[in-house]
Design a binder for these strands. Structure first.
Lengths: 326, 326
DNA sequence: TTGTAGGCGTTATCAA
DNA sequence: TTGATAACGCCTACAA
């Protein structure tokens, strides 16, 4: 550390000054800070974290990054983490358990102080590798979704109530023939939505129409609706578990000369950007991504201070957004 | 290191074994590996990088993450980096020079071995803080865009040729009244597109119609087209510098009863997902994001081995995607 | 208020 | 083929 000799003090004093210790004379401190500035000194984080046994880094794992929902989550989380003077290590599992396992190891190697895991959207039959985090004493939790069988808390949207309210709203609009495009119900977040639909429809003593789709995406939505049109098995409303599917439904309907919403109503879910960008503004349910990020972060920070979360499940309120597609 | 005593060997031998050194007896190695597995040993990266002076980490800076273009770039880059057994530190500048400056410091502190900078989309009047990287000897380059005045190479799409080819294609379709929605020409990547438009139109001796917009986004596109309709200053084709704007134009036209493409043609740029998701499939120009990521990465890897890039500018070919909006 | 010295977990250089 | 030991750069007692 050449600043030491340049300033004519010992290396220990420099360290104290750099870290703003009150022990060091303010004159000396000023001199050292000025010098270190001039010499472009930048401390070595590896050495620091080695001796302090703290990295001031959090880790977050997401299934994919080129997905507006996840990337927005990252954006929000990133700003919370930075506002507390922590760094955020972002890792992408690519919907792959093996990858996720590797990432966990990586995080441990790098001494992150806490991990937020956003599970991928497929069944993960054996996520027990996640327990490695507990073994080495790194606090962690799930956000947006969770894996069954891991003892950790999770922060997710109250999807069931969200969908329930949406369908209730449809019913209040006097719709009675309401179909739901549902994916694999073994995926928790899809199951929750489906439950909301079911509950609302049953309460109103309406017939439930669940159309199973193989994948909850745009293309699949298009082809399913194409089929419905061919078969004449149309419904007055198509409720979709996400906005991309709603968009697919709308585009397919319109391309077949069926007008939305006058002949056929459609709703989405998530309120990702496309909602406002569609040819007809889509009625949808907004997930409060920022709030999920914030809550996860606060819980994690709390766990660092030894505060165990007081529940296993934290549900974040959703918001019904009424637009023009129904 | 408790593995050492458990295995009855010295700590140095354990280190060798863990790192698969051929110096150590294969029996011993096997025993040590087995033990370290059982004991759940995970090496401390901070200590490692401290002594090796290598972090096996690259850094990438992007302006925002909840943007399909950037997040796709990250996705591609991430997989290249991981395939070479490096880690990728992803940082978000949030379109903020001060933030970008802090990130650079952070990367230096963390000893990353190379940095890829994706500049933000506004003028950066004094990006000289980036030169700190050079001072400490960390190789870096620009991708997707670049800042003037920094001596580094950049890997970007050949946007000018891309736009030129698109407009030539329009001309070959016998369109003659072609307007261009252009943003701030002091932004390099917008300027390049505009130049392409100009060149094609001039070569064909057509009148050029450049409509300046304040921001190159969806809302602005909508309001500009709304104005055109009001003023009766319509054109036969609206060429947009990106797909979101094209979507805005199309939706506004259709909502005003103007059919696309029969009355009015529209084109986009970038080929982000929306292109195929619009009510009418948008003719656009694809940027080869994967190729940009790959080339940037290869150059950076090369620089680690002391290979100076042989040029300052690397242009990646774009691809014209003919669809239904014209 | 400042200097000295030990140690964080690992690798690398010798010597054995 | 292995063991001992000195770094790596920084922080932190404790001593001065």
């Amino acid at each position: 550390m050449d600043i030491a000799e340049a300033a004519g003090v010992s290396i220990g004093t420099v360290s104290l000054a750099i870290n703003d210790s009150p022990l060091v004379n303010s004159e000396t401190k000023k001199k050292i800070k000025k010098l270190s500035q001039e010499m472009g000194y930048i401390p070595n984080e590896a050495a620091r974290s080695l001796v302090r046994k703290k990295s001031r880094q959090f880790g977050v794992i997401i299934p994919e990054i080129s997905n507006y929902f996840y990337s927005t989550f990252i954006k929000e989380l990133n700003s919370f983490v930075h506002s507390m003077n922590y760094g955020l290590t972002i890792s992408i599992s690519d919907n792959n358990p093996a990858q996720e396992c590797m990432i966990i190891d990586e995080m441990i190697r790098n001494n992150v102080e806490g991990v937020i895991i956003v599970p991928f959207n497929e069944r993960n039959s054996s996520p027990e590798y996640i327990n490695k985090l507990r073994k080495v004493g790194i606090p962690f939790l799930f956000a947006v979704d969770y894996y069954d069988g891991i003892d950790a808390c999770h922060v997710i949207s109250d999807l069931e109530t969200g969908m329930y309210n949406l369908v209730k709203y449809l019913i209040s609009l006097k719709y009675t023939d309401i179909a739901y495009l549902s994916g694999d119900p073994s995926v928790i977040t899809l199951k929750m939505r489906e439950n909301g639909y079911r509950r609302a429809v049953e309460e109103a003593s309406l017939q439930s129409h669940i159309i199973r789709v193989r994948a909850v995406d745009y293309t699949e939505a298009c082809s399913v609706i194409q089929d419905c049109i061919r078969n004449g098995s149309m419904h007055r409303v198509f409720v979709c578990p996400n906005d991309m599917m709603a968009l697919g439904v709308i585009n397919t309907l319109r391309n077949n000369g069926i007008s939305v919403p006058s002949e056929c109503a459609v709703t989405g879910f998530d309120n990702v950007i496309f909602s406002s960008v569609s040819s007809v503004a889509i009625t949808t349910v907004e997930q409060n991504i920022k709030r999920i990020a914030e809550k996860s972060f606060r819980l994690l920070i709390g766990m660092l201070d030894g505060n165990k979360p007081d529940r296993k499940e934290y549900l974040i309120k959703t918001r019904l957004i009424k637009r023009d597609s129904c």
